[in-house]
Design a protein around this nucleic acid. Structure first.
Lengths: 187, 187
DNA sequence: TTCTTAACGCAAAGGAATTGCGTTAGTGCG
DNA sequence: CGCACTAACGCAATTCCTTTGCGTTAAGAA
């Protein structure tokens, strides 16, 4: 239930256990189906007692959400391909493929399996930052940029909606068409 | 983990139990927090044994998803206000408010708390049908219509994205702006 | 180094999930 | 209409997950 609160103890044992538990979750969710993933098994793999996990994360849902948010965090800045248009295309393609994949969809689902709404917001913040980074580059190049909010509403949102709800397959042509709507006249 | 499969027995006791369990879920989820909602309690309220629920729905997640999808089903056709534009505005306003509400968000969450992807697709199908109904009316009126897919991508998707991820509040002006993008020139 | 206390391990207790078996009641056939 | 068939249910025992009290360990501060 719990909080996954900011913990005043970040060093040594606490950090070691957190890393160990996260790794155990990643390993086990790759080995078995999500429905048979249980906290005692995770604890055993991580080399801790179950009560440690219960006290620190509260429930399986919170733990999975915590791990998913961590994995959803982009590791690098979006690729600089020379123009806002191509940057956006490259980023969108990667985003769409990662989120559409089996593990991507599982992570998104995990994010929602916790009552803590902060998790979903955090994911949203990640994509917003990435897009802002691309947008900021345009200023240094003096080219026509784009509005980040518009990209979120009309490129990111439709992609996520298809993944989560309609299940309709997408290709790069579809993504390009979405980008066209927020960057008109930049063929 | 189960299936919520189509059951060959639709009459009498089976139907009675299903209705009773659904009602128990609705009652209890209004009375207590989702985190303390448990199958034994639901079974007691519904007047059945827990094993009945486990066998029929598999898990709490599947049961909640089943109930949520049923409640998400629209009860009536979208209001006919005389034009496609106003129909769309009326429908979007209602959709946005229902989904943004506390119970709406809880139901969406429940839909994802089951590994069965069919549930989310079903919800998507509901909105698609509603929009199609509005679109079909335009044919009988000879007015400029709209593309349902476009409305899903650029009106429904942004709204859902804000509810699920960014948490950003919305008003009717925002929705109208979204509609403008898919129905240009119809001020 | 020493003190304080957050975080962990252990173990017991409580509750939920699973399953075998007998019973009830839809459904279809004669 | 009555009978056979079997899906679905109730009951109860078992297993596993979850919670909690208490003693111990180790991180952070003085």
């Amino acid at each position: 239930m719990a909080t996954v609160k900011e913990r005043p103890r970040l060093g040594g044992r606490s950090a070691r256990i957190q890393a160990s538990v996260h790794e155990a979750v990643e390993q086990l969710s790759a080995e078995m189906d999500r429905s048979e993933l249980a906290i005692p098994a995770i604890a055993a793999r991580a080399g801790v007692t179950p009560s440690t996990i219960y006290r620190r994360w509260g429930s399986l849902g919170d733990l999975l959400a915590d791990v998913a948010v961590k994995r959803l965090r982009p590791m690098a800045d979006p690729l600089d391909t020379g123009s806002a248009r191509t940057d956006l295309q490259a980023w969108t393609e990667q985003f769409m493929e990662e989120m559409s994949s089996e593990v991507g969809r599982a992570m998104i689902r995990d994010v929602f399996s916790s009552p803590v709404e902060t998790n979903a917001c955090q994911c949203c913040a990640y994509t917003y930052e990435q897009l802002q980074t691309i947008a900021d580059r345009t200023a240094g190049r003096g080219e026509a940029g784009f509005d980040v909010d518009e990209v979120v509403d009309h490129v990111v949102a439709p992609i996520m909606y298809r993944i989560l709800f309609s299940g309709r397959p997408m290709d790069m042509d579809y993504c390009d068409a979405l980008i066209d709507r927020v960057m008109p006249g930049c063929e």
